[in-house]
Computed example of a mutant assay.
Amino acid sequence: MTTIGIVTGAGRGMGLECARRQLGAVDRLLLVDLDAGTLATAADELATSAHGTVVEPFVLDITDREGLAQLAARARELGTLRAVAHAAGISPTMADWRRILTVDLVGTALLAEALRPLVTEGTAMVCFASMAARFGAGEPRPDIEAVLADPLDEHFLDRLREAVGPEIEDTGVAYSWAKRGVQRLVQREAVRVGGVGARVCSVSPGVVGTPQGRQEAAQHPSMKRLVDQSALGREGRPEELAAVAAFLLSDQASFLTGVDILVDGGVIAGLAARRS
């Protein structure tokens, strides 16, 4: 049996580190990213230390249904789907509110839908959410949660704006709701695929020293304050997030599914301590 791994957002940052951790864990690894140049560089780098894993780049926009169908077909052609690390996404300074929700939440739902027919006993998937879902989206509200539960509805963005209000057009707010939607999606997906012995979890990073993270920090000085007031008092490293994702994808985590793992260096703990 040839085992297949898929890593999205694999061109750099946390996605690249997640891909690195899958070398030797699967027989063939599909590296997915929108940027063909960055992806080619990552594939060349990983191929030099592949530990027996065959590395294959796959250029794809995660919101492209047809492209996702081709990705699923390629994975099926190659072997048995074993591990999926979905790190592709954009942050508040990179697009408007609609694009953020489309890439970060709708894209995640589309990926899960495309790969669902391939999952089998032992398949594991990790989706990247964010600590922002814990405090940036406000208190849970049934009307908003009902909309978030169906991100593939053709009127999803309009329905969410109606439920949340005009503040959803703030890209930071949109990002927080998108990542909360990812956490909720993981819970539902875990139930859908659990019957065949597959697992789905999410990881919620804090402030991490990636190019994307540094871009956000440059625009939002409040992020440095969060880091300074966190339990560890430092930002995370991409490889630290990848290590958690690798554990969740491994057989060692065989009884973990439908949960979100907060990996924030104690930011949320710091916020709680200041409130007490």
Rank of each mutant, 00 (worst) to 15 (best):
G172W: 11
V207G: 06
R20M: 00
L78G: 07
A124F: 01
D264A: 14
G13S: 06
V182D: 03
G122I: 02
L249M: 06
H220R: 15
V59D: 05
G165V: 10
L23D: 11
Q22I: 03
L78T: 12
R225I: 03
E167I: 13
P117T: 12
E240S: 06
R141N: 08
F135V: 04
T2M: 13
L226F: 14
Q252K: 00
E169A: 13
A83Y: 07
E77R: 15
M223D: 06
P140Q: 01
P92T: 02
L256W: 07
A231M: 09
Q22R: 03
S176L: 06
G11C: 08
Q252F: 00
A72N: 10
G79F: 08
A40H: 05
L271T: 05
R234Y: 05
R184D: 13
G9P: 02
L148I: 08
K179F: 09
R225V: 10
P140A: 07
T80N: 12
S91R: 04
V203H: 04
L241Q: 11
V244Q: 01
P151T: 11
G181N: 03
S91N: 11
L68S: 07
G172V: 09
A231R: 12
D153W: 00
V173Q: 11
R184E: 13
E189Q: 15
E240K: 09
V103E: 02
L157E: 13
E45A: 15
V200A: 06
V263S: 11
L30I: 14
G11P: 04
A69W: 03
